[in-house]
Structure formats: structure tokens, C-alpha cells
Design a protein around this nucleic acid. Structure first.
Lengths: 193, 193
DNA sequence: CGCGGGTTTGATGATGCTCAAGCCCGGTGG
DNA sequence: CCACCGGGCTTGAGCATCATCAAACCCGCG
């Protein structure tokens, strides 16, 4: 149940078995099936979710009803609308499963308490934050500097697993282009080699 | 010297005077003048810098020699190439001052040690990371969903101070458009009201 | 077999880029 | 004090990239 999660924690920090047990007591498992919503606009994002299995995405929707994918989360990643989670303001985005998923979650009411109970977990979340920042930095750089083709190449290098897991129109959305453009980019790519 | 920095820490966590003194002992002040480089490609980013005064930017340069600004940092913000800082691989980006700046820095050799000496600082950096993530999320969303005009409007709402502080061509770079486009967008904006 | 979501392809058009020139303005030196 | 220089901003014309709209295609599934 919690094996992957505890292994992930152990890979970043060292906890005694007692501490680990205490940590776990604050978390709860949750399964959501494909297309099921975890977060939606107007509601507060109450949980941080660690993905055990499956795949989630977070996205916003613009005035024309177009979805824009901000993040994918596969196994060993966490996902949440941190803006809503930390401030308590209603979320403006959606999070749902694109493949049936098993999660390990912590509620925002328990989060600070857990960190007080096991302060070493501050480091765990600091390190996660650092990884997230590194990933965001790359993402922003690609978004503002790259052509459609460069974006796709970089993405497929960085996330070869997602190329498999996610349907193409979602990858297009993540990359900030239309499905048609991505289709044409791939065709071009193919011709080049 | 360290007033703003200690105030910033105190606004996020509670430290005893002794702890604060210990923390401070790991940091050193640094002044850099306009146009001076703090980080450059090929070299490891050895410091995290807290901005006391002035303004810095981080940017990448593409094959055509175009600069793409990833982040601005004014007072009370921190800046670093976290990818290089945490992994120790050479940076691929530049950080320089766009206004004479006073910084409070910590060297990567001292960072983990400082966190061991004063574990409460884990929380400080966790919270900074959270803020950074929230900001990045907004930035990514704007980059992939907005038109040039929407990007500018959102930016001027979120960072009215930077509209003053940064020259227009840098704001254009930050927003992922050319200076010409930003100029035209502003003209349009003006005509609307 | 036929439906439907997702992908591909094509034609057209808009947004934003490129290149080039002119303008504005603050700083410098005669 | 004025002339000149230069960087940054603006303006214009033409163009490339990518979006839009529409239709066809593919394929798994009921």
C-alpha cells in the first residue's frame, strides 16, 4: 500500500521505523478511476497526492473552453494545486486521472501537524520542492524560447515514458500547441531521419 | 546588512536570537553592480542569493543569441540556478544584475551544513519553494495559454513594480515575445481605454 | 457492422516574428 | 550650451509559424 511512498521518502531522508510509522499515520490511500476529478475550480485543493500507480494531470480551462495541461504526474510524483492548498483560496484548475490511479494523500488540515510531529519531513518536502523548481525552470524556458518542434523533441527526451502513457492531444496541450500542430511536427520529425 | 534577510526569515519561521546568529554566520553579503554576472554557462552555480536591494535576472541564450529571461528577482526574493546548485553540474544559464544590487548569499558547500546546524531552516526553504512553485505554475499557465496581450496584462497586474524597474525589452523577453510585439501590444492597450 | 474518439491532412487566416528605418531622449564631449 | 552619439522604443512592410475550421481516416469496441 505505502511501499512506494515510504521507499520514496527513504530515498531522500532517513527516518527510524517509528518515525515512518508516525508519518504514515497522517496519510491515507485513495484510488481514483480514469476521468475522475480530484480538484475542480471553485473548490479548495485539500490534499497533496503522491502517485503510486496510474497517471494524473492538472489543467486550466480558458474562456474558449480549451484545456491547458500544466503538469502530468506518474508514479513517484506528487500533484496538487499548491496555490489553493497553501493559501486556502478556491482552486482555478482541474486535476483528474488519465489512467486509473492509486494515490497516497495528506489532507491540508494534517499537513502542518505532520511536519511538527516529524520535522525531518520538512527536508523531504524541501527536496521535492527543489526538484519541482528545476522541472519548472526547464518547462518555462522551453515555453518561451522553443519552436513547436524543439518543444516536442525536448519533451520526448525528458519524458519518454509519458510519450507512451499520454494521448497525443494531451501532450500537445502540455506543450502549448494544438493537436494538429503536434501531428505535423511529428510527421516532419519522421521525414528527417 | 542582514536586516531585511533576518526579517524575511522571521516572517516565515520563529528562530531564537542564538539560532538566528548561527544562521547568519553561514551567509555572506555581496554587492554586484549593474551588468555584472553572477552565474554563467559552464560554471557551477555555487550560491543561493537573497536580494536585499536592486534587481537581478536569470536568462538563457539560444543558438541565435537571443536571451530568454526566466526570472527577475527584486528585494525579498531569492535567485539561483537550482539545477546547477543542487546537482553540481555546470549551469546553462546566466544571472546578472540589471540594477546595482546587494545580496545575502550562502555557498553550496555550507548549505546542507547550515540546515543541519539549524534544522528549522528546512521549513524556511520549504516555504520559499512553495512560493516559487505557485509563481511557476502561474507563469507556465500564462506561457502556454495566453495571447501576447493577455500575458502583458497578467504580468502588469502581478508585478506592477517590475513594470517600473525593468526595461521593456526585458519584460518582452520574460513574456516570450519580441520587443516589437510588446510595443504594439501596449499601444493597443492604450487605445482601448 | 457501425459508432465515436483520436489522429491526420488540407486550405485558409491570424498572430507574432524579422528586418529595416526612424524617433526619442539622456549622456558626453567639444 | 549645443551637437552628436547610442540605446531603447516605435513604426511599417513582408513573412513564417502556428491556429482554425473542416473533412477524411483509422481503429478499437459495442
Amino acid at each position: 500500500m505505502f511501499e512506494l511512498f515510504t521507499a520514496h521518502i527513504n530515498s531522500k531522508i532517513k527516518l527510524t521505523p517509528a518515525e515512518m510509522e508516525l508519518v504514515i499515520s497522517f496519510y491515507f490511500p485513495k484510488s481514483i478511476s480514469k476521468n475522475q476529478l480530484l480538484v475542480q475550480p471553485g473548490k479548495i485543493c485539500t490534499e497533496i497526492s503522491f502517485v503510486n500507480k496510474g497517471c494524473l494531470r492538472s489543467y486550466s480551462m480558458d474562456a474558449q473552453g480549451n484545456k491547458h495541461i500544466l503538469q502530468f504526474a506518474v508514479a513517484n510524483w506528487i500533484i496538487a494545486d499548491m496555490e489553493s492548498f497553501v493559501t486556502g483560496i478556491p482552486s482555478k484548475m482541474y486535476i483528474d486521472a488519465i489512467k486509473d490511479a492509486d494515490l497516497v494523500c495528506i489532507h491540508r488540515n494534517d499537513y502542518e501537524e505532520m511536519l511538527l510531529a516529524v520535522p525531518k519531513m520538512e527536508k523531504y518536502y524541501r527536496l521535492l520542492g527543489q526538484s519541482h523548481i528545476v522541472a519548472s525552470q526547464r518547462r518555462v524556458n522551453a515555453a518561451i524560447s522553443y519552436t513547436a518542434e524543439q518543444k516536442y523533441v525536448e519533451f520526448s527526451n525528458n519524458y519518454p515514458d509519458l510519450i507512451q502513457a499520454a494521448p497525443q492531444h494531451m501532450i500537445a496541450s502540455y506543450l502549448g500547441m494544438t493537436p494538429e500542430t503536434l501531428s505535423r511536427v511529428k510527421k516532419q520529425q519522421f521525414k528527417k531521419k
